[in-house]
């Protein structure tokens, strides 16, 4: 090999070396250490899992980060957990957080629904180490992380389910693509897209369904379509308003000012806006009834119905 080739080889190796150095440096900077896999029980690893693998951010926001409202805002969670633990007679806030992850339906914050899945089960299937890391991260939200204390819960947290994931299958052959078309088809008597946004498409009357397939089961979709009032996502409860003229209205609050209230009400499958001056309101109370029509099963064919479920399930 001549001299110039040696120089070129050395130069190329130096560039590759620089690149490897950068990746090692960034790995350190991002808080994942120099190990072989992303992991370790640290707040940094937990933060990544919270916003990534764990899919926690699909339902929870943290202060100004994220916009999900299905679950409670986790800002200052650590200090709040201490208070809740005291109320419930538990030894520490950490106990409360661990219990909330292991048995999500046990301590549901007032005003929220029982929608949190067990994160060690499919489809999320977080490993034990990852759950511990998330706990470490949650501790930093209004407190200080205490890894030693967290590690004491190691044996209490189950390992991720080893069940083989079998995606839901419709009883009949349907295509999620067809389901998507039906979802947004405005020529039909009922159009889901008129009230729900999926990936930026549709209108925001009801909750946004982007990414819903990653956190909810097909059973949840079946229930939500057939009996919409069984579980209502927080913030989407209807208001019952009676005017001074005795006219009753049932709908979602779109906006409210000092002088007037704008309600969205459903009328024969269409959403209408009604503006009611505040002075004309005689009574107003929250109801446990969804604005979503309860007769959707009568408006869809079997194939269309499962097509929509299949489409929702595909939104991962």
């Amino acid at each position: 090999m001549n001299k110039s080739m040696l120089k070129i080889t050395a130069f190329a190796i130096a560039i590759i070396g620089f690149y490897i150095y950068i990746t090692i440096y960034v790995t350190g900077l991002s808080g994942t250490g120099g190990g072989e896999s992303v992991g370790g029980v640290s707040p940094e690893a937990g933060e990544k899992i919270f916003w990534g693998d764990g899919q926690c951010s699909t339902c929870h926001k943290i202060g100004t980060s994220g916009s999900a409202t299905r679950g409670p805002d986790q800002e200052g969670l650590s200090s709040r957990a201490e208070e809740r633990a005291k109320e419930l007679g538990m030894p520490s806030g950490l106990d409360y957080m661990v219990e909330s992850i292991l048995e999500p339906e046990k301590y549901v914050v007032k005003g929220y629904d029982k929608i949190m899945p067990k994160v060690f089960d499919p489809p999320i299937m977080l490993s034990r180490e990852k759950i511990l890391a998330v706990l470490a991260y949650l501790q930093t939200l209004g407190g200080e992380p205490d890894i030693a204390s967290i590690m004491k819960y190691k044996d209490k947290i189950p390992e991720a389910s080893k069940k083989k994931v079998k995606p839901w299958v419709s009883p009949i052959v349907v295509d999620a693509k067809e389901g998507e078309k039906i979802f947004f088809d405005e020529t039909r008597p009922v159009t889901c897209g008129k009230c729900h946004i999926v990936n930026g498409k549709g209108k925001k009357v009801g909750p946004e369904l982007t990414g819903i397939g990653a956190i909810q089961t097909p059973e949840y979709f079946l229930e939500s379509i057939l009996t919409p009032s069984a579980k209502i996502v927080k913030g989407y409860e209807t208001m019952y308003v009676i005017t001074t003229d005795g006219i009753p209205y049932n709908g979602l609050i779109k906006s409210e000012t000092e002088n007037e209230l704008v309600l969205l009400k459903e009328e024969s499958g269409e959403i209408e806006e009604v503006t009611i001056p505040k002075t004309e309101i005689q009574e107003m109370k929250k109801q446990d009834v969804s604005i979503m029509p309860g007769n959707i099963s009568e408006l869809l064919s079997v194939k269309d119905f499962y097509g929509i479920v299949s489409f929702l399930q595909s939104l991962k």
Binding site: T23, V26, T27, G34, S37
Partner: peptide
């Protein structure tokens, strides 16, 4: 894999 591991393999 971590970035550092990826860096070595890609290198």
């Amino acid at each position: 894999p971590t970035l550092s591991y990826m860096g070595r393999i890609v290198g």
